[in-house]
Amino acid sequence: MRRERGQKAHKRGHLSEYIALGHLMLTGHRILGFRLKTPESEIDILALKGKRLCVIEVKQRRTLLEAVTAVGPVQQHRLWQAGLKLQDRKPALRKYDLHVDLYAITPQGVKHVRDAFSEGI
């Protein structure tokens, strides 16, 4: 029973990522990566819009507050580090401003929270 719940949560998570991808593309973002595994962290979505290089974490929760609080300080730090390391490894990305955003998928809809987490960790 526990395994079934885990599998269902995994599938819902993937569906949420696809919803976020579609929304990002409709709002003019260029998708640079999807489910990127880095030594620092897994990046759900890496996107570019204008001068913003966005490391995007996707969470499906009942409320926006639950989605934001589901990303703890350690994970926030890892997301920042993953973005910074990507910029170090890929010189073409250095000219963009790094941002860590959250996509919250809730029963109320889709919410893109820009700069959801501060870098000062």
Rank of each mutant, 00 (worst) to 15 (best):
M1I: 09
R2C: 03
E4N: 10
E4V: 05
G6T: 01
G6I: 02
G6M: 02
G6F: 06
Q7S: 12
K8I: 15
A9W: 03
A9Q: 13
H10V: 02
K11T: 13
R12D: 15
R12I: 10
R12M: 13
G13Y: 02
H14Y: 12
S16C: 05
Y18M: 13
Y18C: 06
Y18K: 12
Y18D: 10
I19W: 02
I19S: 04
A20D: 06
L21D: 06
G22W: 02
G22K: 09
H23L: 14
L24A: 05
T27G: 06
R30D: 08
R30Q: 13
L32Q: 06
L32C: 05
G33C: 07
G33A: 05
P39V: 01
E40S: 06
E42I: 00
I43C: 04
I43N: 01
I43Y: 02
I45T: 09
I45P: 04
L48F: 09
L48D: 07
K49T: 10
K51G: 09
K51F: 12
I56N: 02
E57Q: 12
E57T: 07
V58K: 04
V58I: 10
K59M: 08
K59Y: 11
Q60L: 04
R61Q: 13
R61D: 07
R62D: 13
T63V: 07
L65W: 10
E66L: 07
E66G: 02
E66P: 00
E66K: 03
V68C: 05
V71W: 10
G72W: 00
P73C: 11
V74P: 01
V74D: 14
Q75N: 07
Q75P: 06
R78F: 05
W80S: 01
W80L: 01
Q81A: 12
Q81S: 13
Q81M: 15
Q81F: 04
L84N: 07
L84W: 06
L84S: 08
K85P: 00
L86W: 00
Q87H: 03
Q87R: 10
D88I: 00
K90M: 11
K90D: 13
P91Q: 06
P91M: 05
A92Y: 10
R94L: 11
Y96S: 05
L102G: 08
L102R: 08
L102F: 11
Y103C: 08
Y103G: 02
Y103M: 15
I105G: 03
T106N: 02
P107G: 10
Q108A: 15
Q108M: 12
G109S: 11
V110N: 15
V110H: 15
V113H: 02
R114A: 13
R114T: 12
D115K: 05
D115R: 08
D115L: 01
F117H: 05
E119D: 09
E119V: 06
I121L: 15
I121E: 13
I121P: 09
I121M: 11
